[in-house]
Every structure is written in structure tokens, then in C-alpha cells.
Design a binder for these strands. Structure first.
Length: 159
DNA sequence: TAGGCGATGGTCT
DNA sequence: GACCATCGCCTAC
């Protein structure tokens, strides 16, 4: 279950697409409903959902999940036991889910992805916004969105 | 709980 | 050659 995400868009200096259309940023300018997977700090893969109509270049970075299904497989991939250490960060969750750079540009409504809407018990969960994490530009924008009181965030909501 | 830091490699200037 | 949308391990308190 997605409990933390951040939004990025073209006019936002922290967004990869801010530099314009390049080979790397092309997926951001592509059709919505597709994955944008990039390598972070030379080490990790990070997953984004491309949003907005083709040509707009906006995306949502998936930053944390509450593990609910396939927890055993996540533990094997992560080589960690603690449930809170499996998906509490953008690099962690891609490792736990087996998402790599090969899935860049892949459609989110086809296998191996299987996205589902909120289920009972999650329809009324609150969402808080605060500044985004790990960026140096446009730090004033409150575009980090977290499920209220979730124990599975990458970091607590400040305040 | 917070801060420092090395690993690591593609992208862009 | 600089810059990172990070992680895990370490210290200090």
C-alpha cells in the first residue's frame, strides 16, 4: 500500500524534466500511466508514475509502501527481517519489489505491474503534505504526501 | 533521534 | 568534473 509519494513537474527546478527533453527524461514527457525508473546516486533504482498528458512532463515518485502482500519475498530480496525496513524509502521499495531499470517506460496497467485502488479501511486515511526529501532546489514546495500516522514512512512528517 | 560519510555510476555542463 | 529525487553503518547524545 502506497503511504508516501512526492510530485514533480516540469517547471519545478527539482524535477529531472526541468532540463528539458533528453534521452534520460524522455519517459517523463511520454504518455501517463507509465513507469519512469532512474538510477539514484549510482546505486539504487527509483520508481515514478508518469502523470499528466503526453508532453507535459510530470511524475510522482513512490517513496514508501506498507508491505501487505509477498512480505516473505520482500525479505529475501532485501535480506532484512524488519517489516519496517523493507519499503521505507524509494530505493528500498524497488529492491523489495524487484523493480529495476529494465522497467523504465513500462505501462503501469500491465504485468508485471498490478496497481489497485484503495480498499476498505484505507478510504478514509488522511494525507498530510510537507517539504520533499533529499533535494536541494525548490525545497519550499510542500509536495511530499504521507498517509497520516503511518509507521512505514521513509522519515517522519516534520512538526 | 540526528548528523557524518563512503559507495557508486549516469547525466549534464 | 560536478552533481545528485539514496542507503546503511557509524558516532554522539
Amino acid at each position: 500500500m502506497i503511504v508516501e509519494a512526492e510530485s514533480y513537474e516540469r517547471d519545478d527546478p527539482a524535477c529531472h524534466a526541468h532540463v528539458g527533453l533528453t534521452e534520460r527524461t524522455a519517459p517523463l514527457f511520454g504518455p501517463p500511466g507509465h513507469a519512469y525508473v532512474y538510477r539514484s546516486y549510482g546505486v539504487h533504482a527509483c520508481l515514478n508514475f508518469v502523470c499528466e498528458p503526453e508532453g507535459s512532463a510530470a511524475a510522482v515518485l513512490i517513496r514508501a509502501l506498507e508491505p501487505r502482500w509477498g512480505v516473505g519475498e520482500m525479505r529475501r530480496r532485501r535480506e532484512r527481517e524488519g517489516k519496517r525496513e523493507l519499503c521505507s524509502g524509494p530505493g528500498k521499495l524497488t529492491e523489495a519489489l524487484g523493480i529495476g531499470l529494465a522497467m523504465n517506460r513500462a505501462p503501469l496497467d500491465e504485468a508485471p505491474f498490478d496497481l489497485r485502488g484503495r480498499e476498505n479501511g484505507w478510504r478514509d486515511v488522511g494525507v498530510e503534505s510537507c517539504p520533499r526529501i533529499g533535494i536541494t532546489r525548490a525545497t519550499e514546495l510542500p509536495w511530499r504526501f504521507c498517509a497520516t500516522d503511518s509507521e512505514y514512512l521513509s522519515r517522519p512528517v516534520p512538526g
